[in-house]
Amino acid sequence: MAISLRQRLSAYVIMGILLLFILIPLVAGALTAFKPQIIWVSSPPVWVFQPTLENFEFVFIQRQNLLHLRNSLIIASGSVAIALILGVPAAYALARFRFRGSKGLLQWLISLRMIPPIVVALPFYVLFQTFDLRGTHFGLILAYLTFLIPLVIWMMRGYFVEIPSAMEESAMVEGYSRLQALRKVVLPVVTPGIIATALLNFIFAWNEYFLALILGGRDTSTLPVAAATYVGRARVEWGNLFAVNLIIMLPVIILTIILRRQLVKGLALGLVE
């Protein structure tokens, strides 16, 4: 492992520049969340100021964004859970059984993810009207499944392919049914994979904006939709926007920190060989 000092040094320098690019907007934005509205924008920028919580007070008390946080939590975790429940067995079958059209089915499933949200939005709009799903969490969960299920199946299949089929076969010889074998023998092995899949899907569902905008009502609108309201036709309320953004980012970051090891392990497990 001969890496020269110069190479190593330049690696640190490049990484340092990159970190600046990532962190400057985030830190500057986070600071703005604590600025009084008169200096949300200013030139030159103000770096030293008396921090205030009035933006948070505004978004949480006056605009009740806690409700949106609740909606986001229900919809994102609900849709990920359902996508996993439906997708994991399908992925397992696609990995284990070779049947006519199994490859085509897989390809077809992942290409479903490419459907532009606008194609989905219109029919759902009508569907919601017919079945009175507008303004329900379930409606949005259903809509999110369009792009979550394909990803779940596609990622999970990668993990199941890795597991030697001898594993559940021997379990089945011992009297387990296939379903039991899947549950008690295979799933524990692919847990990091499930966690990685769940986390990635959670991020997609958590940050989704378009469908939530078109299909959500007051009782179901999510945090990204709430964030967008601070950029009204009238003006941009930067401080309120960044205050909400901190709330949007926090759960994902916390989850990523907690599940960091499983995430990397899971991704490595499924995607390499």
Binding site: P36, G232, A234, R235
Partner: peptide, 30 residues
């Protein structure tokens, strides 16, 4: 709207064509 309002309220422009609904904002010292 957001940007032109912002420019005026931060003292970057001398005159500003706007709409009546913006008046309460323009008169708010905060």
């Amino acid at each position: 709207f957001g940007e032109v309002l912002q420019n005026f309220t931060q003292g970057k422009v001398a005159m500003y064509g706007t709409e009546s609904w913006a008046i309460p904002l323009l008169l708010d010292p905060e």
